[in-house]
Amino acid sequence: MSGELPPQVTRTREGRPATFLEAIAEALWEEMERDSRVFLMGEDIGSYGGAFKVTRGFLDHFGQSRIIDTPISEGGFTGAAAGAAHMGLRPVVEMQFMDFISPAYDVLTNYIATSLYRGAGPLPIVVRGPVGGGNRGGPFHSQNVEMAFFHTPGLKIVYPSTAADAKGLLKSAIRDDNPVIFEEHKGLYRAPHCREKLPADDHVVPLGKARVAMEGEDLTIVTYGLMVHRSLEAAATLARDRVRVEVIDLRTLLPLDEDAIVASVQKTGKLLIVHEDTRTGGIAGEIAMRINERAFEWLDGPVLRVTAIDSPVPFSGALEDYFLPSVADVVTAGRYLVNY
């Protein structure tokens, strides 16, 4: 084990701001230091340090038994993570890109998610990796995968929007006794506006609790991930029209913090849901239904959504920009709602 720490895990120790990616690295490092049962598995995460260098230097420090370079077989090593979790270990599985989680869909939904219910015990596994578009990655390196798993009881899904949340939520996910899908928008990894000083103590953010990213009284925007930042930009534009927007950052999609959404809608009477995932079968539909069940009496307008269009993520920059929800889209929908 080497004594020199990789630079991406020392920002907070040195009192310096950390990027979103460094926050992820710090969370992994600290949890591995804290709990010897935690180990990492994934493609090229060892000597190569992972596709985005999150785990650069981890192999030297923690050794091969805890930093496992896997074959390119997402189903196989996710299944193996289940076995290791049965035996009391706490595997953190990295998908090089979350688009590649689909080969592991079977074992995640049929075996891992059902384990506790079947009486086979809890399986504390985190499956984490980069998601999202805007990087010209095309259809196979840009997807958001949350809704492929959202309807599977037994799973949790986390999708942070800030560096502090990324660190705190990932630490919580690793400590959680349930399987957690942890999505990291690659557009936030090194984004300058996401660089921030992280709490120096053992920073843990509970799963299942949304946060109010901006307070307002005229319109609620419920969103998560990169779209939190787009929504805040839109809110700033709308503020020039004297529209006070409340932005709810879900942080955790499953379990969904329904109470936070309802409370905000009871205050504003208007709800706009913004997500980068495609429209049909997106989480907006579920949120709208829950508001229909619990806060119909408080609504002063239709529930609207701004999402990606229903297509694969296109490769061309021009096409992808059209595909993704923009600040202008959010502003347009927001204006429509407040004037409804």
Binding site: G76, A80, G83, V107, R118, A120
Partner: peptide, 24 residues
């Protein structure tokens, strides 16, 4: 005892992870 769940091959994956934990 570990129960069989999933299509053929699944339990070889899972038991590989069990064995990995033993080895670790």
């Amino acid at each position: 005892l570990i129960g069989w769940d999933g299509p053929p091959g699944t339990m070889t994956q899972v038991l590989a992870g069990v064995a990995l934990a033993f080895a670790q």
